[in-house]
Structures are given as C-alpha cells and as structure tokens.
Design a protein around this nucleic acid. Structure first.
Length: 450
RNA sequence: GUGGUAAUAGCUCAGUUGGUUAGAGCACUGGUUUGUGGUACCAGGGGUCGCCGGUUCAAGUCCGGUUUACCACCCCA
C-alpha cells in the first residue's frame, strides 16, 4: 500500500472545509486592514535561502538538482522571495507596501506536534515605514487574524519585546557586534534552559560578572511597565550618549503603546522582554502570540504567531535598503488552538435543495428543473440513479438539504411541483416554471408547517 | 539527529497462559409493498492484524530488525 510521505497531510473534503474556514478568516482580516494579496513560486533557487540563512539551512530544506542542472529548493518560508519582489520594484511601489499571502511552506525536519514538513502560513508584511505606527498596524492585523475566530484576551496574548532595547542593554555593558548576537542567542533560550547551564554559556562573555548579568536579564524580563523599564535602563547607562539612545528608544515605545491603546488593543498586549526570537535578522520590536492557560496560569505551547521588524534584510539580499515589519501564523497550530477552544464552526456542505422525481417519466422534467435551480444560484442535488420515492426522501434528508422539490406524476400533469420544507415538514404546490423563484423565497423565509 | 511509547476494518477500539474461518460500535452499500425523509428493522461489502525475518506442530499474540505515528530533547517557521 502506498502511503503519504512523512510529515505531509491529505485533505479530505471535511479537512479542506476546515482549512478554508481558517484561510477565509485570515483573508478577511488582512483585507479589512488594507493588505493586498501577492504570491510567490513554490520552487526557488537554493541560493535564495542560503544567502539569508547560511549553508546550514540546506539540511532543513527539500532541495534537489533540476533537469537543467539548477540547484533548487521548495520554499521553507516566504520572506526571502517577498524581499526579492519588493526589492526589485522598491523605487516605484507606493509606500507603505502592505501585502499578505497564505501559502504552503516546506521543511525537511522531523515531524512533531504542531510542526510538519508542510504547513500553510499566513504572512503579513509592511515595507517602507520606519516608525512604530507600522509596528502597531502589523500587530493590529495579527490580533485581528485571531479575534476573527471569536477569540479574546482571555484566550491569547501578544508578548511584546524589543531587540533594540536588548542591544542597548548590551551596549551599556560594553558588548557589541557578533558578541552581542551570541549573547542574545543565549538570552533567547533562557526560559527553557536550566539556570546553571545559562551561567555556563555566559562565562566566556562575562566571566565573573555573569551572575550580575543574569540578574539584570531576569530583572528586565520581569518588567511589565514601560516606565519601570526606562528607569532600569537609565540606571545602567554609563554615559550620556547611551542614555540619549535609551531615551530615544523609550520614545518609540511610548508611541507604539499609545497607538495600540488608541486601537483598543492594550488588553491583548503584554510587555515581555523574554521574547527575543532566534532569527538573526530582526532589528526592533519583536513579538510572539501565545495561547493562555485557563485561570491566567501562563502561556502554553508553541507560539501561534511571531514577527517583528527586520529593517536590514532587503538590503542584505542586495536590494536598496527598505524598512520592513512582518509576522507569520501557521495553520497547524491555529487549527489545534481552535479545536481546543471549540471555535471551529460545524462544517455544513449541504445542498439547499434536493430534487425528488417520481419515475422515469418525470426524470426529464426533473433534470430540467435541477438545471434551472442551479442557474438561479441554488445549490441543488439529486439522485444520479433514481431509486424509489421513499429512498429519495431518505437521501434528501441525509443530504442536509433544507428543501425537497418533488416532481410527482400528478403534480407535473397539472404543471406543478411540490416544495417541501425538510425541517418543518410543510409543503406547498407551485407552478413548475416558478419553482426556482419559489424555492429561493422558501430558503429565505421557510414554509409554514402544514 | 537522540531517546521513550505505540501500530488490528474508513474511524474508535476488543481480541484470554500462543490454539479452527480475527470481532464490536460508528461509517459505507443494498433491502424492508415504486408517493414522503433523517434517528427504525434486516442483510451485505470491507482486514495478507504496518512491513521483513525468526522461535514453534501452531503467531494478531513471543523474539529481532525495519517503516510510520505520537511524546520528550536538538533546532527552527
């Protein structure tokens, strides 16, 4: 027996319906926020990904040599392709560029919970706007993509952090450049690493001062208020130059928080410097969205969404420098979350009308009626192999159709058909020619019980 | 990539210390006087018990390997 490749999914109609529901909510939220849809190729040159992430990435890609001898890979993410699209036309695109996309991404990795070799991801990005207004706008659309499912601040929270602030902290302590990136990497893993291990990793960078540094990290991560954060940062600043940078950054924070508050999003947002995000290309505000445990017991599971500012990436890929901010949200974790929260609506793929025909003699008229009902925009079903009358009603009932239209011998002889409301059981006699209109009325208003 | 657990019908599962032709519920198909339905009743189809090998008179059951899935690491989206 032939099986699926590991980490891939078959989508039966009910699975597709569920997936389409998620896509629809995402799409509507993105469009409401003024984002336009774009798309990119599934297969890309391998270099596009090694350029951004280094040669190590190849171990996690579906890659091969095509028949033309080109090294190619299935896209593991959209950002490099998007950066190429925007970069190539950056001079003529109207700013801000607000684009979204829902597409399948591939990773050659061991599949596990919430993480397969193929998943669909929503991406929203804004290019060409350096100010916090763009960060706020992006978070607004991200939150809308979750709120669109009927979820609220009791279900999830956006943890807001800042790579710039982290860099300033390190700068204040005299650490910069690659060394700062390494330390950030350690900080990123802080939450899921034993304290002893973190201290060991910090030793090469801080020596005996590692306890002090870790204490400062813990303090900063514990702060939930902007002014507390400001006071803490000021207390560490060794000179006026850095103090000035800190003040400038705090100004950006206030601007961002003010915009979020004005959009009534404060209840979703928590300042939390514990979020660093592993990816090297983030430059400013970064965030991750987590589901909340009941009774405020903290965050649970894998991030539902994550994103932030990446002002240098487009330039790094060889295009004119362009400010950028974006986030991604995957369908696997989303579907899991919705199932837990019971926010997946029942999937109804029933016809509106089921046409029941008495005998072979009525078959032709019945097919004609089916055709006219469908032309009128009514979802219409009928038995391809017409069984007995009772059986057809059973099929009509099982189909979930709201109406049955009965093309019976006597009725048809008088130029009529019977419309039956399968919910109430009520029936009305209508002229055959007027049946589509009558069916539409009945679907809108129902038929009184007989 | 490392470790743990598991694999029997489309789904959820049962299957005794190894012992005839492997079962149930749901789902599916057909029928229950060819003019009234879902949710009634009857019947039926569907399994080389994940795969390969071994032990045994005999393996769904015991042993080894392998594949896949799930869980925990590693790493990330």
């Amino acid at each position: 027996m032939l099986e699926r490749l590991p980490g891939f999914r078959d989508f039966y109609p009910e699975d597709c319906a569920r997936r389409d529901f998620i896509f629809r909510v995402w799409t509507e939220a993105a469009r409401r926020h003024g984002f336009r849809r774009y798309d990119i190729p599934t297969l890309e040159p391998l270099e596009l990904f090694t350029e951004k992430s280094g040669p190590e990435i190849v171990g996690q890609l579906f890659n091969f040599t095509d028949k033309g001898g080109r090294e190619v890979a299935l896209r593991p993410e959209l950002t490099p392709s998007l950066a190429r699209m925007v970069g190539a036309r950056v001079a003529t695109l109207k700013k801000p560029v607000k684009w979204f996309n829902i597409a399948e991404n591939f990773r050659y990795e061991k599949p596990q919970e919430g993480r397969l070799r193929s998943h669909y991801q929503l991406n929203c990005d804004i290019f060409g706007e350096p100010g916090p207004a763009a960060d706020a706008e992006l978070m607004a659309v991200c939150l809308a993509c979750l709120r669109g499912f009927g979820l609220g601040p009791e279900d999830f929270a956006l943890r807001l952090s800042d790579r710039t602030l982290w860099s300033l902290l390190l700068e204040a302590l005299g650490i910069a450049g690659d060394k700062a990136m390494e330390v950030l990497g350690i900080v990123d893993k802080f939450e899921r690493t034993p304290r002893e291990e973190t201290l060991k990793r910090l030793e090469p960078h801080f020596g005996d001062a590692r306890e002090d540094f870790l204490g400062q990290v813990e303090t900063l991560m514990g702060l939930r208020e902007i002014e507390e954060m400001g006071a803490f940062m000021r207390s560490l600043a060794p000179n006026a130059a850095i103090r000035e940078k800190i003040e400038a950054r705090l100004g950006m924070w206030r601007e961002l928080l003010e915009a979020l508050d004005a959009m009534d999003l404060t209840s979703f947002v928590r300042i939390d410097l514990g979020i660093v995000r592993g990816l090297a290309y983030y430059t400013g505000f970064v965030f991750e969205v987590f589901k909340l445990a009941p009774a405020g017991a903290g965050y649970v599971g894998r991030a539902l969404a994550g994103g932030g500012r990446y002002d240098h990436l487009v330039g790094k890929l060889g295009f004119p420098a362009t400010e950028a901010v974006g986030f991604g949200m995957g369908d696997v974790t989303m579907a899991q979350f919705l199932e837990e929260k019971k926010q997946l609506p029942p999937i109804i793929e029933a016809p509106d009308v089921y046409v029941v025909a008495a005998r072979e003699g009525e078959r032709r008229a019945a097919l004609g009626l089916v055709s006219r009902l469908r032309a009128a925009g009514i979802r219409t079903e009928y038995a391809l192999r017409a069984p007995g009358f009772g059986k057809q009603f059973r099929l009509a009932g099982q189909s979930g159709a709201r109406l049955a239209v009965v093309v019976g011998t006597d009725e048809l002889a008088a130029g009529n058909v019977r419309i039956k409301d399968l919910g109430s059981g009520g029936e009305t006699l209508v002229p055959l020619a007027g049946a589509p209109g009558a069916a539409r009325d009945a679907l809108a208003g129902g038929i009184a019980s007989a």
